[in-house]
Nucleic acid binder design. Structure first.
Lengths: 235, 235
DNA sequence: CAGTATCCGATGCGATACTG
DNA sequence: CAGTATCGCATCGGATACTG
């Protein structure tokens, strides 16, 4: 980054200089979520190019935000936030709270599409709340325009320690059908709406296994910010 | 801004999309300081071009961060933060605190030069703590390399309601001589150091009127964050 | 004072291809 | 898996000149 500095005597501007370059905060958020591997970070922040991610990580390492740890035994490389980056949590929480309470839901979620929502859903699954047996949940996004892949299958296998999500029919019997829109599901996860609310408004339909349907609010976590007062609700 | 959106279901990224465009936060800070006029904002954020400031203000107005109020009587135009922008204060405070406590002072102030420091000094003057009579304080910056204008005169006139600052000799008798460096004075204002401390370390010398020298910690305010614990001190 | 209009340059960034 | 290397463009933004 040979970005021109602001050159002000002001701690906020200093923070801006460090945090403003594109993807910096998203990378930190991803590390915060526990991701440590290059390609996982890449997917997590949404298709940043390898070249740019590589550069950013180096820059962030130079700034003391990120630590790169190479495991000589396995040859793998993990990235972690430094103390300095962890200390950003209060600021990032404040930003999240601001966005949730001050930006209207429809604007906030205007960019939501099926695939990105499902990527978030994947992270929000509470595995322990899903049945021990094999179970298949199919999400159907009825958005306009229709997404490239309108269907997603969430497959729980008894042996696995995490459910699979795929956009191509795995050819299994489906236990629970979820019919919704990307914005509605996104709003539920962000805490701007709720499963109940979206069902009432006719934007979420569950059919199939009644147990799975009833426990959806347990096996699908909502954002940690969902409990905030004053979130701008999706009408 | 046709800036490519992040496209993530994440309130932090949403905040980033709104706040990351260059100068956005600096403009908000300036409005926060009470500045309302176009050219004052311009100077306050440090020579942003008129074209860009104009565009940014429009964008921020469209985003609901800024309100533009035209006084039909006088024809003047004032800008104010909206409620939405005021609600950013906790986040901006958190960022300031982070930068002060986690970024080393020498890096934080590496861009400090005499003219920008004096611009901040101007805002930090507590007029009521200066004598009622005419008084002249001369700042001499002994930086390396020497600044374009190494001297600044702060002139208090009995009638005026605010002191003048100029970089050309007004030709008055000087009451107090302040000899220092841009980094030292910047550090004092940011609360990374103190008048006492810089005097002890030989980076600040006061000579002339003993009363003015003694009261410097009253007529020169320090940042509101100066009281924070754990600020990285300028050794 | 409060901007427009224009121009141009740097570079940030994305896309793709390729490597150990 | 974890990157490098290259390319090319869009756009962001700085400088300057000009206007009501």
């Amino acid at each position: 980054m040979t970005r021109r500095p602001y050159g002000l005597i002001c701690p906020i501007s200093l923070a801006c200089e460090i945090l403003e370059p594109r993807w910096t905060i998203q990378i930190l958020t991803e590390l915060w979520n526990g991701t440590t591997r290059f390609n996982d970070i890449r997917k997590g922040v949404g298709n940043i190019s390898t070249a740019l991610l590589s550069r950013r990580l180096k820059e962030m390492e130079a700034l003391g935000l990120v630590e790169r740890i190479e495991d000589n035994a396995t040859g793998t490389i993990d990235y972690f936030r430094t103390e300095k980056a962890i200390n950003l949590e209060p600021a990032m929480n404040a930003l999240a709270e601001w966005a949730l309470c001050n930006i209207e839901a429809d604007i906030a979620l205007s960019g939501a599409d099926a695939s990105t929502v499902m990527w978030v859903v994947r992270r929000m699954i509470v595995f322990a709340e899903l049945p021990r047996r094999r179970a298949v949940i199919r999400f159907h996004f009825r958005d306009d325009p229709p997404p490239k892949y309108p269907h997603y299958w969430l497959v729980v296998e008894p042996g696995a320690d995490f459910p699979e999500i795929c956009s191509l029919d795995p050819g299994r019997d489906v236990d629970l059908y979820v019919e919704t829109g990307a914005v509605s599901l996104g709003a539920i996860i962000e805490g701007r709406s709720s499963i109940e609310r979206e069902k009432e408004r006719g934007r979420l339909f569950l059919s199939g296994d009644p147990g799975l349907a009833r426990s959806m609010d347990r096996w699908l976590r909502t954002s940690v910010y969902a409990a905030l007062e004053g979130i701008d609700q999706l009408s």
